[in-house]
Design a protein around this nucleic acid. Structure first.
Lengths: 107, 107
DNA sequence: CGGTATCCCAAGCGATACTG
DNA sequence: CAGTATCGCTTGGGATACCG
C-alpha cells in the first residue's frame, strides 16, 4: 500500500488543525487578530485551560504567532502566521462541504 | 457575527467525517469496496466495536452504504454512496495540506 | 464471517481557585 | 488582562467473551 502516505497526511492534518477547539479558533483568526480575552468572549464554552493549551499547540506548529505587548495591563495578540494562511484552503473546503451537508440533513 | 455559519459548517464537517477512525475508513473506501474483515486487516489497531460504530455512523449520514449478501458464510460490503463521493474533495485537500506540513515539520 | 454485549480504564476536558 | 495549578469527572475507546 503505497498510499499509506495518503492516510498519514490526512491524519496529520486532522491532528494539527482538527479536534474540538482548533477549527473554531482558526475560523476567528481567518478574519482578524484576536486577543486572549476576545477568544473567551467569542467562545464562552471553552475553558481558559483548553484555550491556552490549543493556542500553544498551534503556536508550536507554526500556524499562529503570539505577540506580547509589555505593558500594564498586559496585552497579547494572536494571529495567523504567513504559513498559517495556508489553512484557509482546508477550512474553506470544510466549510463548503459542511454547508451543503447541513442543507441535505435539514431536508 | 453572520459567520457563525462558517464555524458551524466546519464543525459539522469534522463531526461527520472527522475523528480518529472515519478519515482512515474513508481513505480506503475512496479507492475500493471493502468488507468488514478487510478493514480489520488493514487497520489492525481498531477494535471491532469502534469499527462497527464508525461504519454505522457513516451509513446513517448517507456517506457509505452497506450491502449484505445473504449467504453462508456471511458477506458484507461497504462502499461510498454517490453522495459519499463528495468527500473526495475534502479528503484531497487535507491530504495535500498534510503532505506539505509533513515536509515542513521534517526539516 | 460479521458482528453484539459487557465491563473497565485513561486521557481529555471542565470547574475552580489562584497569580504576575 | 492573560494566564497557571489542581483536582475531579465524563466519555471515548480498549479487552474480552459471546452470537446468528
Amino acid at each position: 500500500m503505497g498510499d499509506q502516505e495518503y492516510k498519514q497526511a490526512v491524519k496529520l492534518t486532522l491532528k494539527t488543525i482538527g479536534g474540538k477547539w482548533k477549527p473554531i479558533i482558526l475560523c476567528f483568526l481567518r478574519e482578524r487578530v484576536m486577543r486572549f480575552g476576545e477568544f473567551k468572549r467569542e467562545i464562552p464554552e471553552i475553558t481558559e485551560k483548553m484555550l491556552t493549551q490549543q493556542l500553544r499547540e498551534l503556536e508550536h506548529d507554526g500556524i499562529i504567532s503570539r505577540k506580547v505587548y509589555l505593558q500594564v495591563p498586559p496585552k497579547v495578540e494572536y494571529s495567523l502566521t504567513e504559513y498559517g494562511q495556508t489553512i484557509h484552503e482546508v477550512l474553506d473546503v470544510m466549510h463548503k462541504w459542511g454547508l451543503q451537508h447541513k442543507n441535505r440533513v435539514d431536508q
